[in-house]
């Protein structure tokens, strides 16, 4: 099965100058944990996730969360997120984007998801335009 047969044709995304507050709002409303970042031509240029935002707000916070014995206060995180709210997503997005192409095979997609510990992968056409997203569950759903 190829990527275009598996993908969700959902182009929910943000642009380079979208403020962080808007990104969080879209994630909350849409229920997505990460969003592709597009340029003016619709070409995929980055990814922003909840994890990226938390890491940017408080470096080391995510690592602290792994320890049940120490849960830091949320005040600092909240304060820092408010400071970041008006800043463009381009400042915090990851640009080393891992994406698949429409004709890529399911095995290759599964391999990419597993190796990179990703929850979802953007799918792009030959010109790099976003055309869909494959979540781990999309693949599992079709495999079962």
């Amino acid at each position: 099965m190829k990527a275009h047969e598996i993908m969700r044709r959902d182009l929910s995304s943000v642009e380079l100058d979208t403020p962080v507050s808007e990104v969080i709002y879209i994630m909350e409303q849409s229920g997505l944990s990460s969003l592709p970042v597009l340029d003016e031509e619709g070409v995929l240029v980055g990814i922003i996730s909840e994890r990226d935002l938390i890491r940017a707000a408080l470096p080391g916070y995510l690592e602290m969360l792994h320890s049940a014995s120490f849960l830091p206060s949320l005040n600092q995180l909240s304060k820092r997120l408010k400071e970041m709210a008006a800043e463009p997503v381009s400042k915090y997005m990851r640009t080393d984007v891992i994406a698949v192409r429409q004709e890529d095979e399911d095995l290759q997609i599964a391999d990419t998801l597993i190796r990179n510990e990703l929850k979802q992968l953007p799918v792009v056409d030959d010109k790099g335009h976003l055309v869909g997203v494959i979540r781990r569950i999309d693949l599992l759903y079709r495999l079962v």
Binding site: R8, R9, D10, L11, S12, Y25, I26, Q29, S30, G31, V131, G132
Partner: peptide
């Protein structure tokens, strides 16, 4: 490709149905 504005729980249901029918969705959430 379908565009427009989606909102709330009903918006999620609409999006799910649109995607299930093979339509590409590019909505703005409000």
């Amino acid at each position: 490709v379908a565009m427009g504005f989606l909102a709330g729980h009903t918006g999620q249901i609409i999006l799910r149905d649109v995607l299930a029918r093979g339509v590409t969705a590019n909505f703005v959430w409000i």
